[in-house]
Amino acid sequence: MAQRIGTKLFVSRLSFYTTKDQFKNMFSPFGQVTEANLVMDSRTGRTKGFGFVSYQSEDEALKAIKALNGRIIAGRIIFVEPAKDNK
């Protein structure tokens, strides 16, 4: 039986200059993005280099992982994986 990955993804090693719109647009081709949040540094106003993106379905999330994990975006290799459940 396949392991469920859920609909929320953790994205790391993003450029510190990535904007929220760029982040959401990066993941939009793979399905309906329900939420896209970059974790921001309150001191600098820039991203800390990671964020979370959620999709309508698990299939869409899986497509995004397969397409973007290990890709070079803005000169950096990004990692896309299922978000850990904080239960």
Rank of each mutant, 00 (worst) to 15 (best):
S12G: 09
P82D: 03
F16L: 09
G45R: 06
A2L: 06
R76S: 08
A61C: 12
R76V: 02
T47N: 10
R4I: 02
D41M: 00
N37K: 15
E58R: 00
F79T: 07
S28D: 07
V11D: 03
G70P: 06
V11S: 03
R43F: 11
F23D: 05
D41I: 04
N25M: 04
V11M: 06
I77D: 01
S54G: 10
G31S: 10
A74E: 14
D85A: 12
L68D: 01
E81D: 05
A61S: 15
I73T: 06
A2V: 06
R76D: 02
G6L: 04
Y55M: 11
Q22V: 09
A2G: 04
T19L: 05
A67L: 03
K20A: 13
F30M: 02
L14I: 08
N37F: 11
R4Q: 12
M40D: 02
S12N: 09
K20H: 10
R46W: 05
Q56R: 12
E81S: 07
F27T: 05
S54I: 07
T34N: 01
E81P: 00
R13M: 00
V39E: 09
T19K: 13
I78W: 02
Q56K: 13
T34E: 12
I5P: 00
L62E: 15
F27V: 04
S12P: 01
I73K: 05
K63I: 01
A2F: 02
E81Q: 08
T18N: 06
G31D: 13
K84T: 12
S42M: 15
Q3C: 04
G75F: 05
E60I: 05
D85V: 14
R46A: 06
D59W: 05
T47S: 15
